[in-house]
Amino acid sequence: MSALIKPELVFTYGDYASWPSEEQWELLEGVPYAMTAPSRQHQLVSFEVGFQIRSYLSGKSCSIYAAPFDVRLPANNEADELIETTVQPDLAVICDAHKLDDKGCRGAPDWIIEVLSPSTALKDMDIKRRLYERHGVKEYWIIHPTDTWLMVYTLGASGTYANHPRMYPLTDPVAVGLFPDLAIEWGFLQDRAG
C-alpha cells in the first residue's frame, strides 16, 4: 500500500480527475494511494465472481461494474470536485441508477467486493472497511484468493457492521445477503489453480 506522503495536503476529486489517465489511484479521505497491477489469481477471481453476478443480474434493475470504475463517496452533499474519497472497488453492485453518471458512481454501492493483494490487504481490510461502513455499503465482501477465504460484512439496522465478520472457506457456495437466491460458486479455483 503506497500512499503519497504529503500529510499537509488534502487532495480532492478535482485533483484526482486531472491526474494522468494511465496512472491508477484511489483517494481515501484526501490521501492518494497508487494502485499496482493485479496478479493473475486476483484477476481470475474478480472476473469469475463478476461473471456469476452479472449473469444473475441480467434483466434486473441492479448493475455490476469492475475496476477501474470510480466510486465517489461524498462526506455530505459537496460538489464532485470537493469530494475527498474516490475508490475503485474490484467489483461494485449498484441498484440505484440515480447514483450512476458518466464519471462512475456517486454514493455508496449496495455491494462491494474487494479481492486482496499483498499490497492492498491492510487498506481493504481496515481503511476501506471503515469507509464503506460509514457511507452505507450494505454488503462488503473481502476475498483472499491465495488463502482461499471470504470475509463478509453486512450493514445492520444500526448502520454499522458487526464487530466480527462472517468467514467462509472458498469451497462451498456462499449465499449473498442482498440476493438470497444467488450463491457464489468457487469451483473455478480448483479447476484453474496453479
Rank of each mutant, 00 (worst) to 15 (best):
L73S: 03
P74Q: 05
E78W: 05
A79S: 09
A79C: 00
E81M: 04
V87C: 13
Q88H: 13
L91F: 08
L91Y: 03
L91H: 08
A92P: 07
I94W: 05
C95T: 13
C95D: 05
D96E: 14
H98L: 12
K99E: 03
K99A: 10
K99P: 00
D102K: 14
C105S: 10
D110V: 06
W111M: 03
W111C: 01
W111P: 08
I113R: 06
S117M: 07
T120D: 13
A121N: 03
A121F: 07
K123D: 04
D124V: 04
D124N: 08
M125N: 13
D126F: 04
R129S: 06
R129A: 14
Y132M: 06
E133H: 11
E133Q: 15
R134F: 08
R134L: 15
G136R: 14
G136Y: 13
V137A: 11
V137F: 07
K138H: 12
Y140F: 15
Y140Q: 03
I142D: 08
P145N: 07
P145Q: 10
T146L: 15
T146K: 14
D147Y: 05
T148P: 00
T148L: 13
W149R: 04
L150H: 05
M151S: 15
V152Y: 01
V152S: 03
T154F: 04
A157S: 13
A157I: 12
S158C: 02
S158G: 01
T160I: 02
N163M: 01
P169Q: 06
T171Q: 05
D172T: 09
